[in-house]
Design a protein around this nucleic acid. Sequence first.
DNA 1: CAGTGGTCTAGACCACTCT
DNA 2: GAGTGGTCTAGACCACTGC
Lengths: 275, 275
Amino acid sequence: MATHRSDTPLYRRLARQLQERIAAGTYPAGSRLPSEPELSADFGVNRLTVRQAVAELERAAVLEIRRGVGTFVRPPAVRVSITVDPRSQRFDLGSVHRALPLDTPLPEGTAGVVEGDGEAVVAAPAVGRSAEDDEAARQLGRTVGELSRVDTVIRIGGRPRVANSYWVPTRPLPAELLRPGRPGNMVLALAGAAGVELEYDWRAFGAIGADLADAELLGVPPGTPLLVREGVSCTPDGTPALYVRRRIDGSSARFVLHYREPGGTDGAGGSGPAR
Amino acid sequence: MATHRSDTPLYRRLARQLQERIAAGTYPAGSRLPSEPELSADFGVNRLTVRQAVAELERAAVLEIRRGVGTFVRPPAVRVSITVDPRSQRFDLGSVHRALPLDTPLPEGTAGVVEGDGEAVVAAPAVGRSAEDDEAARQLGRTVGELSRVDTVIRIGGRPRVANSYWVPTRPLPAELLRPGRPGNMVLALAGAAGVELEYDWRAFGAIGADLADAELLGVPPGTPLLVREGVSCTPDGTPALYVRRRIDGSSARFVLHYREPGGTDGAGGSGPAR
DNA sequence: CAGTGGTCTAGACCACTCT
DNA sequence: GAGTGGTCTAGACCACTGC
């Protein structure tokens, strides 16, 4: 292994070999890889080099590492679909979408709604000089001093899956609304507090690695790919009234937008994303 | 540093300290961090521990590492907005959106459309037994044997930014259409080859770390957070006719969906996402 | 308890960038 | 050439998991 001449680093060649073995079925989905000391001996490289290769494949969602247990080949993704209604500011949470054939058993922890699910306030931080606060002020056409902010977390299937930050040009907000732990749909609560109706202006989708704060909120390692959905909602007369920024654990959830009416011909035999 | 008792690992405490210094302005945006040996000496930890902390902050898009030069505090993101028209299958590429105050200078390499921009074929792989191929077959309600596949890359601002895979139940496809390097909008070409019109059925957004193949195509390190946009388009009678899967470098581009008509009141003084 | 992955150190050599 | 980050090794100790 170490004798093989190449300009690509050893750990990446090792990662490629592991991925090839997975694709070839040598390590089938769900199976345990040889332990790090074993791989280290088999390939004749240091254990740290093995770890570097394994870490890359873990970030690419090819492997799943369970501390004290072993490293496993990830089965095909099963993710929560979050279906968005463009009219109301409402999600349809908890619909489980299986991305692969129907005979794949559901992994544990991906089932439907459980106790404690839903949205809850985690903090109401002062709107200061963070880059996010400045961005919110810009998007709403206000100064940071005019804004209030609320941070929430949405739990699905018992796990925190979405971290949210809301900025509104309403100050002060009712204290009850900001109480940590307060449950309930925050968009509706904010619209109610401001006494306005809200309509989508625009929404944008991006992807970023979890920073240290989001990693803690969502219970994932820093750097985990997060789906970021941000946007502005307006009152019916077009005044920007809400800037939202949501961070979603990318490996466990996805946003689905439907363009055709439900009940139409489904050529895939009902196997499309849950609605 | 090393004497400080805590159950959080040393490298993460170091990462947190670095992030605090960045937030506090000790290391301003765009500035160079002390070199790894310097940080190693300053904090009294091994260089590998420093590297672990820096690597986390790099994946979280807080730092940018330039080999042989140094490690820098990332300036506020400037990203290409990809605006989607829900009717046609068309993008509006190349519109640059600045996420932060307007006096921030544009970094190099983020300007408008340059030579070589646009979509080009990179491969027409056989539709075999990969997990993606199976998923495409399932979504289109076909067997893998009935499908053709084309992979393309879209370049914006001179850099590859979007990797695409298309599956269609048309076989064989015209050889000219599959020629590596062939430029032009692939959705339109595929619709033309099949002699049909295409409408959106659904689109889903997710986030995932780049696997080894996508990392090479996009010129980013494996594990880089990618925005994944996938979906099915139908013919007007509702027959699934195209499954698309796009992977977009999350740090440099985002998808924008507009819900209000253009020309309406823009309370933010025209500072919203490019249209 | 044995085995797994997680962290940390010390030291070495290399490839790259800029001057 | 000097300084930067990139890779790799050897060895150690720890925390977690499951039997």
